[in-house]
Every structure is written in structure tokens, then in C-alpha cells.
Design a protein around this nucleic acid. Structure first.
Lengths: 130, 130
DNA sequence: GGTTGCCTTGACGTCGGCGGCAAGGTCTAG
DNA sequence: CTAGACCTTGCCGCCGACGTCAAGGCAACC
């Protein structure tokens, strides 16, 4: 399979696949004329990359998962390095959830106060002026 | 007050203040020699900018708040445009909280399954091999 | 042999909020 | 007079995951 077909089947672009390659995540062979040649397993690898990217992983975080797949495991999650990354990411997400919750509260309060203030202003305005 | 003093008092850099100016958020006068001159009110404006940036607003989102302060209100929140931005941002944060919660669940499950799988693998490995 | 379609490498553009540096003007204290 | 502290404009760099050309090679079909 060449790069165009893999891109179509993985739902991404050829540019993206080359980008992954420069970052050591995808490893195609080469045909006689220099074209990249991918086997079926690479499709699985690309799917793994895409789904991890989609939940906020960076390419560096993803490397262990790909290595785990390449090591023959049927899932990229099961190797120690992958588990370590999963733990770290879970902690990061928890932390971010905390901070985002705080932000939400501040936004909510700010909005409430702004609206209250506007109503008071309206009353004051209507009083003397109306 | 010149740019250096404002930067110190606002806890930021001169570069940052010039950046805000290019984006229409801060408006200094000029002294005879070309130096920027800020009045006390600009310190308040910069604080408003900083606190809104800190909770995830972009400079474009912040503009209405600054305009509100400049319009003479004692808070940047109370003008209709500011309230609209607050509502939109609250909705965005809620949306992001949802998605991040989903990610958290997926991470949690993935971690749980990975660890379970590893234990099973350990048992299988210990069985025939040990 | 010409067109079409796929492939190659290389290099610059994107978004946002600045950091940092260069080259020079200005003011003040000693 | 000079050092140094401040100011000016302008421009490149950064991060990350790519998009978007550009210029050219390769393969297949008519």
C-alpha cells in the first residue's frame, strides 16, 4: 500500500503521514522507485496515533504506544511505558479539570454579578430618569 | 507614568504592554520625546486584561471589557458586550468540561484495562514459564 | 508522446501571546 | 563628557500538528 491509499483508509492526509514519519512514529519501506510502501499493520498504528491525538496526547506521548503495538501486542496500552504515560495523562487531565472547574465558577459568579449589577443600574436609571 | 513603571506595577513586561497596544487594548499618550505616557486608569485596564487572559480569554474576547472600563464603569463586566462574551465563554468552558470528562473516563478505563491485561499476561507468563 | 495522477523532497505559512535582540534616541547623575 | 538607565521601532523565534505550494520524477493509458 502506498501513502495515498493509507491516507484515505486512515482518514488523514499524506502530509500528515510524512509528518508522523519524520517524528519516528510510522515506518514505511521503499519500493524501487522511491515510493513509500506500508503494510497493513501501519493502518492500525495510524489509527492508534489519531485516537490518542484526539484525546489530547502529543506525538511524544504516543511513541510508547506505537512501540508497544510494534512489539506484537494486540493493544498499544499494555506496555509499562504506555501505562506510565496513561497515568501521567490522567493526572494532567484531573489537574486541568480542577482548574477548569475553578474558572467555571469564576465565570459563573462574574456573570451573575454582572447581571445583578445591570438590573440595579436599570432600576436607578428608570427611577430618576423615567 | 512611562512604560517601564507600568510594566513593573502590573507585573508584566514592556514588550507585553506594546503588544496590547498594537491590538488596541491599551492606549498611552506620548510625551514630547516620543515616550509612551500612561495614566493611572491604564493600570486597572492592564489588570483586567491579565486576569481575563489567565482564565483562558483571548485578546479579542477581552476588548469589550476594556471598552466597558473606558466607558466609565467601575467594572468591565457590566456592559452588554462583556456579558455576551461571558455567556459564550461559560458555554465554551462547559463544553470543554464535558469533553474533558469524557476523555478522563476513557483514560481511566484504558488504564484499568491495561493493568488488568498486564496482570493476566503476568499470570500466563508465570504459569507455563515459571 | 501527451495527459493524468500519483509520488518525491523542501520550504514557508498558520495561530497566539509574547521573548529577545539589534540599532539607535533620550535623559540624568557624577 | 560619559556611563548607564530608560525609551523607540522593527523583526525573528517559539510551540505543535500539520496545510499548502513548488518543482520535479514515475507509471499508466490513449
Amino acid at each position: 500500500m502506498r501513502i495515498g491509499e493509507l491516507a484515505r483508509r486512515a482518514g488523514t492526509s499524506t502530509r500528515t503521514l510524512r509528518y508522523y514519519e519524520t517524528h519516528g512514529l510510522v515506518r514505511p519501506g521503499r519500493s524501487a522507485n522511491g515510493y513509500r510502501v506500508y503494510d497493513e499493520a501501519e493502518l492500525r498504528v495510524v489509527h492508534e496515533i489519531r485516537s490518542l491525538l484526539a484525546i489530547g496526547f502529543g506525538l511524544d506521548d504516543i511513541r510508547p504506544f506505537v512501540a508497544c503495538l510494534r512489539a506484537g501486542h494486540d493493544s498499544g496500552d499494555v506496555c509499562p511505558d504506555s501505562v506510565a504515560v496513561l497515568r501521567r495523562k490522567l493526572a494532567e487531565v484531573d489537574d486541568y479539570l480542577d482548574r477548569l472547574g475553578t474558572v467555571r465558577r469564576r465565570l459563573h459568579d462574574q456573570l451573575a454579578r454582572a447581571i445583578t449589577h445591570r438590573e440595579e443600574t436599570c432600576l436607578r436609571t428608570r427611577g430618576p430618569a423615567g
